[in-house]
Amino acid sequence: MNFSESIKKILKDRDLTPSALARMTGYTPQHIHDLLAGNRRWNETTISKTCEALGIEILIVPKDEKKTI
């Protein structure tokens, strides 16, 4: 699962819209929609603001470690 798909799943699970995420992060709704659709690339700043707004973090785990989160 890529980052956009993970964020879409979190938004769905929390009953949030991309527009709500835009308000939470300070980006325009169009910018968030473009990120989620793959029309824009995520960068360190957008990832950081999104994680902060949603209260999540990114963990780096080697592929050979099967870890359930």
Rank of each mutant, 00 (worst) to 15 (best):
L16S: 01
D34Y: 08
T45S: 15
R41C: 11
G55K: 04
S6M: 05
L21S: 02
I7L: 03
R41A: 12
A53K: 04
P62V: 10
K8D: 00
L11S: 02
A22F: 10
S19P: 05
T28I: 14
H31Q: 12
D34M: 10
L59K: 14
N39G: 12
I10Q: 01
I47C: 06
A22D: 08
A53H: 04
Y27F: 12
K66W: 06
G26V: 08
K9V: 02
N43I: 09
G55N: 05
L36S: 05
F3D: 00
A20T: 07
A53I: 05
P62W: 11
I69Q: 13
R14G: 02
C51S: 10
A20Q: 08
L36C: 07
T68G: 15
S6I: 03
K67R: 15
T17L: 07
T50S: 02
C51Q: 11
H33Y: 14
L16C: 03
S48V: 11
T28Q: 14
G55S: 04
H31R: 12
I56V: 12
I10H: 00
L59T: 10
L35T: 01
L21M: 08
I56Q: 05
P29S: 10
Y27D: 06
R14M: 05
S4V: 01
I47Q: 06
L21E: 00
I47H: 02
E52W: 09
K49G: 02
E52C: 09
L21T: 04
I58D: 06
E44D: 13
K49L: 10
L21C: 06
A20H: 04
I56F: 03
T46W: 00
D64F: 13
C51T: 10
R14N: 10
L35G: 00
N43H: 07
R41D: 15
D64W: 15
I10F: 03
T25P: 05
S19K: 15
I69Y: 15
K63W: 11
H33K: 14
Q30L: 11
I56H: 04
T68P: 09
H31K: 11
Q30V: 14
L21G: 02
D15T: 07
D15A: 12
I10T: 06
T25W: 02
S6E: 02
V61D: 04
P29M: 08
